Simulated assay, not measured.
Amino acid sequence: MRDLNTQPVKTLFLGTDWESVETLRSLLEDKRFDIVGVITTVDKPVGRKQILTPSKVKEFALENGIEIFHTEKQKEKYQQALEKFKPELIVCKAFGEILPDFFINYPKYKSINIHFSLLPKYRGAVPIQKAILEGEKETGISIMVMSAGLDEGDILKTIKEPIYETDTNLTLRKRLVEISAQSIGNILEQWINGNIQPQKQDSSKATYCWQKDISKENAQIQWEVMEPEYIERLVRAMLPWPIAWCIWENKRIQILKSTLVKKESNRKAGILFTEENRLFFSTKNPTLCLEILQLKPEGKSIMTPEEYIHGRNRN
């Protein structure tokens, strides 16, 4: 039994975005873990001016005096990182690179990954969006020992979390980030001290999700094809990117917030109409309409239905 309070574990952290930062922050503030360094992506050009911008993890590491290392998908650099940091534990959250076997198997306490689904369901890049799109009532967090396969590692712990009817990708993601950051330290201590027996995944039940599932093309609303319930979920799943959209009067309209309402309409699917200062799209179901609560017409700012209606009337 190792007393982590007197013998903190030398931990190497891998991550990139704001989700990763919250996990890193939690481990940095936890005296049971000695963050010896972080591996993150190199600075990337961002915006119209293509300004080189560091990852959120790099910014946090710089602010907190944590040593930074870039592997740039090169095996020899992963080897250099091991020689440099000699970690007893690797923790990975939203890193975005395929890791070499020798790297993930190096630490005494293995390499641990945090994945936002109840594995083996929704292995891959976009599990939160996919769970919302598929109408799941529940998702969660899987803490697993990393392996060579995509999210195939043995499970240390799963934490379930409901998906509410109003949840967007962003609201659900924020909850999962908070829960995982609060939980990871205790789970890791149990694992290190042999109090968790890893459970193998049943790969026969595995499903997968890919980045292309939330492409701009797949964010287009197909009014005459898609069920209205799916369209409402699409709007919630595609926030904050790429944002669900459709074409109306030869221009693109992005829909940021909507709700499905029972409303009779004899219009064909995909017709935008107003009623009592409210904005609706008809769907393929003549008894259901999608009420628009926030939208962004092409070339304009985000607006409310009232602002949109007022602008149309003025024109």
Rank of each mutant, 00 (worst) to 15 (best):
L4G: 13
P8K: 07
T11G: 08
F13A: 05
L24S: 01
R25Q: 12
G37N: 04
I39N: 07
D43E: 13
K44V: 08
P45W: 02
I51V: 15
E67N: 14
I68W: 01
I68M: 07
K75D: 15
K75H: 12
Y78H: 14
E83K: 13
K93D: 01
I98L: 15
Y106S: 14
K108F: 03
Y109G: 06
S111L: 01
H115C: 06
L118V: 09
R123D: 02
K137E: 14
G140P: 09
I143F: 15
L150M: 14
P162R: 06
T168K: 06
N169H: 11
T171V: 06
S180C: 04
E189I: 08
E189L: 04
I192H: 05
N193C: 12
Q197G: 00
I214K: 07
E224V: 06
V225S: 12
E227W: 02
Y230V: 01
E232K: 06
I247F: 12
W248L: 10
I253K: 01
K262C: 11
K263F: 10
E264G: 12
K268T: 14
E276D: 15
R278W: 00
F281C: 10
P286S: 08
C289N: 09
L290D: 06
L290P: 08
E298K: 07
M303L: 10
Y308A: 07
N313H: 13
